[in-house]
Design a protein around this nucleic acid. Structure first.
Length: 916
RNA sequence: GGGCGGAUAGCUCAAUUGGGAGAGCGCUGCCCUUACAAGGCAGAGGUCACAGGUUCGAUCCCUGUUCCGCCUACCA
């Protein structure tokens, strides 16, 4: 058989493209509902259609791919369901920017034409991330790719909406919501990011209406909202203010007077002045307080967060000064006006949290508007139970409490968004019933649905309203939160609401792999929806991986310029190196700090593997003979035993999602045991190409290498396939070959014990070289004595092997007296005694080395002795610890003795040289 | 404000439930030895953040402090 030749260094490029294409062509990633294996399924956390691959995706998807490839090789019926979400706000932003560049706008196009444009954009430039995932080697079932705006998934959304509504879990109402004045839409609570900033606390003088000389000091961080104040609150038990409750104050900068109310919930007597202004239309607390006291709500901000007030609300000069200004500009004006009118008591610097839109970082405003909400408590309850009783496992366990805490305190979910791209809310309103046509919004022409209009919720447009009117039914213009459709992902992608074979086979899915940042956004909501609509949890295990940061621990962001681009990394070091880095650094509960040097290190690892394969191919020529493992040579028995141990470790660690430990076991085995030790040990045998030993060794070499490739394949799919194909193998692709399992006949405790004897012996040899400062190239003669019969026969048996490994001539395995003969330096360990000639050594230096060692040993021995001399220790420590310490002391004393002997040997050699 | 996690070699991290701390990368020295210089061999390097406490004994358990993260929150 001709032996294939490989290049001297591994070049990942063409290998990766070539194999990925072949895997796809062969349909190796396709899941089949008739497959007999036990199902194993993962749904991908759908990336945004606008997204492109960053390191976080690389980590997330590498881990998923490792699981999927591993389970696939184990014979499970695996499905990795890929797809994207439509990213309502983000995508609309992207397309609107394009329109703006063309000098037009979505309003000018109209809703239908705009949506057409979005679809066009999606077809052309959306979803580049999916091709990037393919470069990463992701073995998704691309034939089943889904998109949240697909017809099937849209149907699922409508179904869910209608059923939630029918069950009383969905309602429309006027509430104060978080509003992004740039995206012009409502946001859910968790879409608001809180940022700590240092702002100002203003203390303003409110004069009493019936006695303007008396002033009530009110503290606020938002003086401009004073124009919308409808009361001032004090604590009802606050001695300072109690008598004022029920009186009126003059609202500065306006012609209005507002009441002073007592409110124990809103007011913290300790904070500020103990008096709070109430702006029910622009603050969440004030909204509640307003409800308690029946206060009017005065809106002073429009949807752009610009001040808009009726002429009656403020003094005309004030209104003129701030009308139409954004909040940030209005605030200093108001501040100045208050100062001018002598109403500003003081301003202090003040730390506070500012809410920002998580998409565009614009400061969000609480805004009063009509929105749809999911009544969440009844959904959350079973979702809490599912995690509490372990039907869903959250790993690492530490995040479980995080989840439970949030779920127990969950608030209703605002699901309507005032944008066009997304699932339009399946609710209609009858203008005829309402009595008059709805007002049209001037900005985009969409209907403005009045608060009191009755919604008809249905999967498709109803023929008529309940009273039979059919001519003027108007659909709600809003769309649903993207996360609403993402929440259905584990079952909507499998065909729900249809009862498909896929749904039956793959739901609940096995594992969800995701980052902590979307635990609430996504994971929690999937659990709620899965339980509600499937009656079963959506996944068994939720594995939460770390966030990827840069080498300094900073969050990667484009503005900081510290982004590591995974595409660039793959280009430079290869995909397998990137993947292995991701796996190796995925320690649970920790952030991943990524530096390029690490990836380079694993690139070197791929090259090491590559060259080991080259070695193998160079030595493959000739007959191969299979013998039972027990009859194999010592290196063969040893490597099979080590391989078996590695199979055990890797499998166990993967079962526990310890990608880090699994990969380090692989690294350790492949590089240090297989390459450094095994390959070195078999070189002499292979040189005698025609020998019996070469025949069996070649067989083991091939067999272990082939197994090793399969073991590594989930981590490094490309290089393993490329090499595996050049080895004798069965099957068309490594992708579907069985994952290595334990072989009882491979375990060889004998070989492992013999190996450690050899290492012990070599350790002594190295130590002598070091003490005597012999250069590495110097040919040395060693004499070795085995202190037990077993050690003695082992050294005898593997004399040539030791010579070869240590690069020495004429290793003499003999008696103790031979090893301690004059002019030799002798060192001893538990089982071995090794001597070598001191001829030509720098004895003074050697002496220094030994003295240094001796000092260290003496220090340690003294410590042990001291401990053993402590009566408390002796009487209270457990017996095994005591014997351990006695053993230690004995060992240390022995070592001291031996080093003293070595010292004497050196000294007498010095004398000898002197006299000679 | 509340909660959680972390602090171990120059760097990144390990360490089966308290009994002299390990690995990778980096560093130093010597080697281009026919698989691999993206390599080999050898080596140096630690007051386990700080202060108390429990214990015969603490990197590990407890308390406090400092620093760093993250999550959460309506002190205007």
């Amino acid at each position: 058989m001709p032996t294939p030749q490989l290049d001297k260094t591994y070049s990942p490029h063409d290998v990766e493209d070539r194999w990925y294409q072949r895997w796809i062509d062969a349909g190796l990633f396709h899941a089949d509902t008739t497959h007999p294996g036990q199902p194993y399924s993962i749904v991908i956390p759908p990336p945004n259609v606008t997204g492109s691959l960053h390191v976080g995706h690389a980590l997330n998807n590498t881990l998923q791919d490792i699981l999927i490839r591993w389970r696939r090789m184990q014979g499970r019926n695996t499905l990795w369901m890929p797809g994207m979400d439509h990213a309502g706000i983000a995508t609309q932003n992207v397309v609107e920017r394009h329109l703006q560049a063309e000098g037009t706008s979505r309003e000018a196009l109209g809703r239908d034409a705009f949506l057409q444009r979005v679809w066009q954009w999606k077809e052309k430039s959306g979803g580049t991330i999916l091709s990037q995932l393919k470069r990463l080697g992701a073995s998704c079932d691309w034939e089943r790719e889904r998109f949240t705006m697909d017809e099937g998934l849209s149907e699922a959304v409508r179904e869910v909406f209608v059923r939630l509504h029918a069950d009383g879990l969905l309602y429309r109402g006027e509430r104060l919501i978080n509003w992004c004045p740039r995206c012009l839409t409502a946001l859910s609570d968790i879409e608001v990011e809180h940022e700590e900033i240092t702002g100002k606390l203003y203390t303003i003088r409110y004069a009493l209406a019936d006695d303007p000389a008396q002033v009530l000091l009110v503290a606020t961080t938002r003086p401009e909202t004073l124009l919308g104040d409808t009361a001032v609150a004090v604590h009802p038990e606050d001695e300072r203010y109690r008598h004022l409750i029920g009186k009126q104050v003059r609202l500065p900068l306006t012609t209005r007077t507002i009441p002073i109310v007592g409110d124990a919930i809103l007011v913290d007597r300790e904070f500020g002045t103990g008096a709070v202004k109430i702006t029910p239309a622009h603050d969440f607390n004030d909204f509640e307080a307003g409800e308690r006291h029946g206060l009017p709500r005065i809106k002073i901000l429009d949807i752009h967060a610009h001040l808009r007030m009726g002429a009656s609300l403020a003094e005309s000069a004030v209104a003129e000064a701030v009308e139409g200004l954004p909040v940030a500009k209005a605030r200093p004006k108001i501040e100045q006006l208050l100062i001018d009118q002598g109403r500003m008591e003081k301003t202090e610097s003040h730390k506070m949290a500012l809410g920002k839109c998580y998409r565009c970082k614009t400061v969000v405003e609480p805004l009063l508007s009509d929105q749809w909400f999911v009544k969440i408590k009844p959904l959350a309850e079973p979702a809490i139970q599912a995690v509490e009783d372990g039907r869903v496992r959250i790993l690492p366990d530490a995040w479980k409490n995080n989840y439970l805490g949030w779920m127990r305190d969950i608030k209703d979910w605002c699901v309507s968004r005032q944008i066009w791209w997304g699932h339009q809310i399946p609710a209609w309103y009858c203008e005829t019933c309402y009595g008059s046509p709805f007002l049209r919004r001037t900005s985009d022409g969409a209907p403005l649905i009045p608060s009191d209009a009755a919604a008809i919720v249905a999967k498709s447009k109803p023929a008529a309203c309940s009273k039979g009117h059919s001519d003027a039914l108007v659909q709600d213009p809003d769309v649903l939160d993207t996360w609403f459709s993402s929440a259905l992902w584990p079952f909507s992608t499998l065909g729900w609401p249809k009862q498909t074979p896929e749904l039956k086979m793959f739901y609940p899915t096995s594992t969800l792999v995701t980052g902590l940042d979307i635990l609430f956004f996504w994971v929690a909501r999937m659990i709620m929806m899965g339980l509600k609509f499937m009656g079963e949890v959506p996944f068994r295990d939720v594995y939460i991986h770390a966030l990827v940061r840069d080498a300094e621990g900073q969050k990667m962001s484009k503005s900081k310029g510290n982004v590591i681009d995974p595409l660039h990394v793959m280009e430079q070091f290869g995909t397998d190196a990137l993947r292995f880095t991701m796996a190796a650094m995925a320690s649970p509960g920790r952030d991943v700090k990524l530096a390029e040097e690490r990836i380079e290190g694993y690139r070197n690892f791929t090259n090491k593997i590559w060259n080991a394969a080259r070695f193998l191919l160079m030595h493959l020529d000739g007959e191969r003979v299979t013998v039972s493992p027990a009859q194999g040579s010592f290196p063969d028995r040893w490597i099979l035993s080590r391989l078996n141990a590695t199979i055990r470790t890797v499998t166990q660690e993967l079962e526990q999602y310890r990608f880090d430990r699994a990969s380090s076991a692989l690294y350790q085995f492949i590089w240090h045991e297989y390459c450094d030790k095994y390959i070195e040990m078999i070189k002499p045998a292979l040189k005698e190409q025609a020998s019996e030993q070469a025949k069996t060794t070649r067989q083991t070499l091939v067999e272990t290498f082939e197994t090793m490739m399969r073991l590594l394949h989930p981590f490094m799919p490309f290089i393993t396939e490329e090499i595996w194909q050049t080895l004798p193998h069965e099957g068309a692709s490594i992708v579907r070959r069985p994952y290595p399992t334990l072989r009882a006949d491979w375990d060889s405790p004998d070989a492992e014990q013999e190996f450690s004897l050899l290492e012990e012996c070599r350790g002594l040899m190295n130590q002598e070289r070091a003490i005597l400062n012999y250069p590495a190239g110097k040919r040395l003669h060693f004499k070795v004595h085995g202190k037990t019969d077993h050690a003695s026969t082992t050294f005898q048996k593997y004399r040539e092997l030791i010579e070869y490994m240590e690069n020495v001539d004429n290793l003499l395995v003999g008696s103790s007296s031979e090893v301690t003969a004059p002019h030799l330096l002798t060192l001893t360990s538990g089982s071995a005694e090794v001597g070598t000639s001191m001829e030509g050594a720098d004895l003074q230096k050697a002496k220094d080395n030994v003295l240094k060692q001796l000092a260290l040993l003496q220090k340690e021995a003294a410590r042990t002795q001291q401990k053993l001399g402590n009566p408390d220790f002796v009487s209270k420590a457990p017996p095994e610890v005591l014997t351990d310490h006695h053993d230690r002391l004995a060992r240390e004393s022995r070592m001291i003795q031996l080093f003293e002997q070595a010292l004497q040997q050196i000294i007498s050699e010095q004398k000898h040289n002197h006299t000679a």
